[in-house]
Amino acid sequence: MTTKLINLQPGKEAVVLKIEGGMGIKRKLQAMGIYVGNQIKVIQSLSRGPIIIESGNTRLAIGRGMAEKIEVQINE
């Protein structure tokens, strides 16, 4: 099932499908380990505030606006 990163519940794992947004931000995310095809896991996601994800050994906090622009495929 595909959805937006922002809709993922804590504990869910998914694969990144698409990142919308400008070149700069895309490259920044890539360098931080968020790129198309990579596995991520949601650690914390509340009704407000940034969403915290884990990719490999990295933990990142991503603003809600950005999390709406990342499309993911949920692992079954």
Binding site: K28, L29, R59, L60, A61, I62, G65
Partner: peptide, 11 residues
């Protein structure tokens, strides 16, 4: 004109 937050949470 808002920029998104992306920040690493170090251990």
């Amino acid at each position: 004109e808002e920029m998104p937050l992306i920040i690493e949470i170090p251990p």
